[in-house]
Write a protein that binds this DNA or RNA. Structure first.
Lengths: 277, 277
DNA sequence: CGAGGATACTTTACGTCATAAGGAGTTGTG
DNA sequence: CACAACTCCTTATGACGTAAAGTATCCTCG
């Protein structure tokens, strides 16, 4: 529920995100730290995973570590920063960019699938306000991986930025939709499908003129065939395909695009020597 | 900051969203209502517009109407539902779908620009958790408009769903990025550009190995030429072009679409005459 | 070794939040 | 005119983030 305290100094997060100097422990008095930023971030993720974003309070995180809420403030400036850290950490460890290959479509598809899965494993991430590019190392690594996968397509910098943004947002958005329908279903103890039909039934009841007011939506919806999971997967798959077609079309000399390239001029180099760290 | 209380009965919102039967006022005792759902929603939007999402409390909304917080509960079940109503109302009045035309690219571009502008006029919308398709009338109308604009492209239902999702998420995501950089700049009383350079300077300081760790990102960033507004606009424009190229590519060549689709002969997607926001 | 200061953590407290419960005033219908 | 329905208020509850101040622990320096 709570997601982001607007003015939380992004600067304070930055230092922590990038592994605030581990401080040579020599020459420091006082009791040894019993906690660590890492442990706190892990506990926070555990709380959010287990009990949902609404249950993520400083008290809850502290409790999970056998401490009070205030103990956390020794390590972390506040809740907003903790959220930043959690979000970035939850993105860590995604597969690195594969070596550049002709089949950039497969590479980008794999990247998108991994990110999608990650979001669904930590649905609370989707409730962290995205009005906030935190620029943590894991997020940037994921973006670098996308750039690496996308590289062989040979986009110019402008379209490349656009494509990266479009891809990321698409994955996040579709993951959010899936997560929401799962959550709603789990909450009401009902299967996805039942929930959807109940929902549309209620809608039809409240807006009897629905089909005439929204003919295209009605047509689109009635075109659905399988259970909602399948529909979500299909949306993900086909939406991604549309995006990739766009990338292929925007690329000057794309490999497997069905579109004949008319402009041979290769624009400013987008580092094709992606050796992927 | 607060964005969405997870379990708020979406059902309760639905009735309100769809204009809960205006109740024939005859045969009702008690004092006449001094407020209305509409007035409350307007006040909520005014508060959020003027003072930001963090300042949106039931007290603040009530105060703006000369009432206490509790007075609102006569009209609205709770804050989550009020947020739903605000969000949908803020989407109302977007331009309707134009008559089907050959130039579906222009139509979709206009649609995207209008939605983008709307988000930027009410930045708090971007902090409402999107993990929640509220299915209000305005949102559905906007989606119907997109479907109308997209129609002449002649997509099959699957790709159409994917494209709709991709387009919507893209607009929302890029709007969020723009809103965030504006907010950050306004907060610190600094121009967009200064804020960005300060940010990158700080990043470079914290992660001196940045260029070697993120070569592609570094290359992409250094390829930027203008002030950030221009970069944002360019991302929007080129990203949208990529998406539209994808739509064109996913459409059946030119055969059974109601209108012969424009062949995507363009190479770099930047050529499109997007008039943008 | 013992004092002093730094550090980890706790207790307590404050202000704010959403909202439950109950009461007061207002208005229509019997 | 009584009563019921209704709006709106006051008050109260429990949770939240976190400021302030206290306590216990440990290192360093005299």
């Amino acid at each position: 529920m709570v997601v982001y305290a607007g003015q939380g100094d992004a600067h304070r997060s930055l230092a922590l995100l990038w592994g605030a100097a581990p401080e040579p422990r020599t020459g420091r008095s006082g009791p040894k730290p019993g906690l660590s930023v890492d442990a706190i971030v892990s506990a926070g993720i555990a709380v959010a995973d287990d009990e949902g974003m609404a249950a993520l309070s400083m008290r809850a995180v502290g409790e999970r570590l056998g401490r009070t809420a205030m103990a956390l403030y020794t390590y972390v400036p506040g809740k907003a920063e903790l959220l930043d850290l959690m979000h970035d950490r939850a993105l860590a460890g995604l597969p690195a960019a594969p070596p550049p290959s002709d089949d950039w479509r497969a590479a980008v598809t794999a990247w998108a699938g991994a990110l999608y899965d990650r979001y669904l494993r930590h649905p609370w991430m989707l409730q962290v306000s995205q009005a906030r590019p935190v620029l943590g190392p894991a997020e940037l690594t994921a973006m670098e991986a996308l750039l690496g996968a996308l590289g062989p397509a040979g986009l110019a910098p402008g379209p490349l930025r656009g494509a990266v943004s479009a891809l990321w947002q698409f994955v996040r958005g579709t993951a959010a939709a899936t997560a929401e329908s799962r959550a709603a279903a789990a909450e009401t103890g009902v299967t996805d499908e039942d929930w959807w039909t109940a929902r549309s039934a209620r809608l039809a009841e409240l807006a009897p003129d629905f089909p005439s007011r929204f003919p295209l939506l009605t047509a689109l919806q009635s075109g659905a065939d399988g259970p909602p999971q399948d529909r979500e997967q299909e949306t993900f798959r086909t939406g991604l395909a549309v995006l990739l077609d766009g990338v292929a079309a925007a690329a000057p000399a794309a490999g497997d695009a069905p579109v004949p390239a008319t402009r041979p001029g290769r624009a400013a180099g987008t580092g094709e020597g992606a050796d992927t760290p």
